[in-house]
Amino acid sequence: MNKPVKILIIDDDEINNLICTKVIKDYNPAIIVESLTSSTRGLTYLEERVKDNPEDLPDVILLDINMPTISGWDFIREYRKMMTAVEAEKIKLFVLTSSQYYQDAELADQYREVQKLFTKPLTSEILEEVDTYLVKNA
């Protein structure tokens, strides 16, 4: 039996997190969604699971890049240090941003951890594309 897909949203905008959760649940009610409002919390969340419960790591991370204190880019650099190759391979990390700067897309391409950069809002079409990354690597 396949375990349900788990998506972790890391974005400092609580309203966006609620909207993303609704879009994801409308797309597939079986998906487990968790959201955190800071990169620091996201890193702690992952660190605890890596140490204590690696099978509870998310399958997908949707990461905003423009956040206070620790940006999404800083998050990715810390994530890279924390995760083993096996754990990082399991998790598909996507940037979900309101940024319209082409430099952000270029920067996202430089991080091997980032599967793709998407522009907000989250849509069912984006989720279909995320699904293809999960199927491709199942």
Rank of each mutant, 00 (worst) to 15 (best):
K3A: 10
V86K: 10
K6Y: 01
L117A: 00
I70T: 08
Q103D: 10
Y101M: 12
K81H: 09
D64H: 02
L18F: 10
S35A: 09
S98I: 12
T84D: 06
D11F: 01
K3Y: 04
G42C: 06
L63E: 11
D74W: 13
K116Q: 15
K25Y: 04
D59R: 03
I31R: 06
G72C: 05
E48W: 03
A105N: 04
Y45G: 07
P29N: 06
R41L: 11
E129T: 14
Q115S: 12
I76N: 02
E55I: 10
D59Q: 06
T97C: 07
K6G: 00
L117Y: 07
K92V: 09
P4D: 00
P4E: 01
M83P: 03
D56F: 02
I91S: 04
D56G: 09
S39G: 15
F75T: 06
V33E: 08
I10H: 00
V50I: 15
S71W: 13
R80D: 15
G72V: 10
Y102P: 12
K25D: 08
K90M: 05
I32Y: 01
D13N: 14
T97P: 10
I32G: 00
D12V: 04
A138Y: 12
M1D: 05
K120M: 08
E89Q: 10
E34D: 15
V50D: 04
E34T: 14
M67R: 09
L57W: 04
P4S: 03
Y79E: 05
L122Y: 06
D11P: 01
Y133L: 04
L62G: 11
P121H: 04
L96D: 03
L46I: 10
K116R: 15
A85P: 00
V23E: 07
P121R: 05
T40Q: 09
P29Q: 07
N66Y: 13
A105W: 02
L127K: 06
L18S: 12
Y27T: 04
W73M: 09
G42W: 01
P29V: 01
K6L: 00
R112E: 09
M83T: 07
K120Q: 11
K6E: 05
K92N: 12
D74Y: 14
Y45H: 14
N16F: 15
T44M: 08
P58S: 07
I7T: 06
